[in-house]
């Protein structure tokens, strides 16, 4: 009798579409999550083979300084990963440390010193620097930085220092643009209050702006470190790829990523040499997680304070 009443009681085309659409989009999201889980599953599974199948002890792996997976010693392959671990950390810390003053300085120019012109010039500069592919950085490093190091310090020119310079330029835009975000989130009123009290611009920057932006800047730095730690090709092209302890900054060395990129193609799946490489990949993965965790911790700390 009541057509309207009946229409309200029968499932409409819209409600069917709604259900289908919701499922479809959930499926997409789910597939991304599955990929993440699969990455961790696969690499963990492969990475643990060194310890389970090849009977290398974890402490030997992390502290050993001899990397020669094709040679066996007392039943287990010689896979001391310390040279690469040390190389990765060294290069990351040096590059980030070098980048921090430049990043903060550049960011301050864009937020406090000359916001208008600073941003107009520096914003595109940063975007371009981010946009340059890492192989191009590697190529420039190889043709400019490495010869320069050779001329100054002698030797081959390959090594941690060359890698540091290349990575410095690569992480600079990341840290800078995130620092800019941190600085702009400091309320304008803080600055006015400080200036009104007679503080100079630098005092305001140093005592007020940088202080209150510290958690954000720290996050930016950790982000930069994460990027540096995971960068593969640009570093691999200039670091020299010698799996030796990096006793000198200007002697060939290696990082986790550089050994991985050169090694995976030259070993056979399932062999001890190959397993050892997957263990390096696992370290990379764990470090990437650690950086993530650090960022979360800093963010939580920062929000607790407020």
């Amino acid at each position: 009798m009541d057509k309207i009443r009946a229409s309200i009681l029968t499932p409409s085309r819209s409600s069917k579409l709604e259900r289908r659409g919701k499922w479809l989009s959930l499926l997409c999201l789910g597939s991304i999550c599955i990929v993440v889980i699969a990455i961790f599953g696969f690499i963990t599974y492969r990475g643990l083979a060194t310890f389970t199948t090849d009977h290398v002890s974890l402490s030997k792996f992390l502290t050993g300084t001899d990397w020669n997976p094709s040679v066996s010693k007392s039943g287990a392959p010689l896979v001391g990963a310390l040279p690469m671990i040390a190389g990765s950390f060294l290069i990351t810390i040096l590059a980030t440390a070098l980048a921090i003053p430049f990043a903060i300085g550049t960011a301050l120019m864009m937020t406090d010193v000359t916001p208008k012109t600073g941003t107009r010039i520096l914003q595109p500069v940063l975007e371009l620097l981010v946009g340059i592919p890492s192989v191009v950085y590697g190529f420039v490093g190889l043709t400019v930085v490495v010869p320069a190091m050779r001329n100054i310090f002698g030797g081959s020119g390959f090594g941690i220092l060359s890698g540091t310079f290349v990575l410095f330029v690569m992480v600079l835009p990341t840290i800078t643009s995130m620092t800019v975000d941190a600085l702009t989130s400091v309320p304008k009123s803080f600055r006015y209050a400080s200036l009104a009290l007679g503080a100079t611009r630098w005092q305001t920057i140093y005592k007020v702006v940088l202080r209150s932006a510290t958690p954000g800047i720290l996050t930016a730095i950790v982000f930069g470190m994460a990027r540096a730690f995971g960068e593969a090709l640009a570093v691999q092209m200039v670091v020299g790829n010698a799996t030796l302890m990096p006793y000198s900054l200007v002697a060939p060395a290696s990082t986790l990523t550089s050994v991985l990129t050169t090694g995976i193609g030259n070993t056979v799946m399932g062999t001890a040499q190959n397993d050892a490489l997957w263990s390096l990949a696992l370290i990379l993965l764990i470090m990437s997680l650690t950086f993530n965790l650090a960022i979360h911790l800093i963010a939580n700390r920062g929000s607790l304070k407020r």
Partner: peptide, 19 residues
């Protein structure tokens, strides 16, 4: 509304909002 409780489960919200 028309002897229906709009909050009940069997209501098709989209058809209802058309009205």
């Amino acid at each position: 509304y028309r002897d229906l409780d709009l909050n009940s489960r069997e209501i098709d919200v989209y058809a209802m909002r058309r009205q």
